[in-house]
Amino acid sequence: MNIFRLAGDMTHLFSVLVLLLKIHTIKSCAGISLKTQELYALVFTTRYLDIFTDFISLYNTVMKLIFLGSSFSIVWYIRRHKIVRRSYDKDQDTFRHYFLVIPCLVLAVFINHKFTFKEVMWTFSLYLEAVAILPQLVLLQRTRNIDNLTGQYVFLLGAYRALYILNWIYRHFTEPHYVHWITWIAGVVQTLLYADFFYYYFQSWKNNEKLQLPA
């Protein structure tokens, strides 16, 4: 465990807690894409299949349970909670899951480290995580403006994977044979996808104006 990895995990944890807290306190999910949240629940489910078979550390298991629990709670809130669900904008959040799920599944079947069910599922979760934010970014562009908490949520989500890239670079230089190009490529694609959002987020923050994403 290095500082980049810990910072990345804490940033990731903070992003899901910010979102869960926002939905829980103001009982609203305005501006939040349910599609993205469902994709994240799928990412964690397919990524953590080994949660009960391979014990790595208490920290690892606890964090996996938190990510699984928070992502499914957020989906539950938006789908089932009698007050929160009213603020869900289903007419705007129309991105089709299968446009992302199917290509990632096909890619994972053909490009993976080992052709076993768990390994293909794990690789699928990497590819899917890289693109899971797209429905959320599309929704932000459609709704034209974005409240601070949602902006912070997306920013933290992007920052966590950028920190993981630093962690991979660090491990590459400190651990022998640490080569995982699939993880690296998926992680870089994911961070680049956020890059344009980062650009507009910083612009709005610097000019102290509401964030407007270009159409």
Binding site: R5, D9, H12, R47, D50, D54, I56, S57, N60, M63, K64, F67, H113, K114, E119, W122, Y164, N167, E175, H177, Y178, V179, H180, T183
Partner: peptide
């Protein structure tokens, strides 16, 4: 295998 070491990440 080296792949194991990556599974220690989240």
């Amino acid at each position: 295998s080296s792949n194991k070491d990556l599974k220690d990440e989240l």
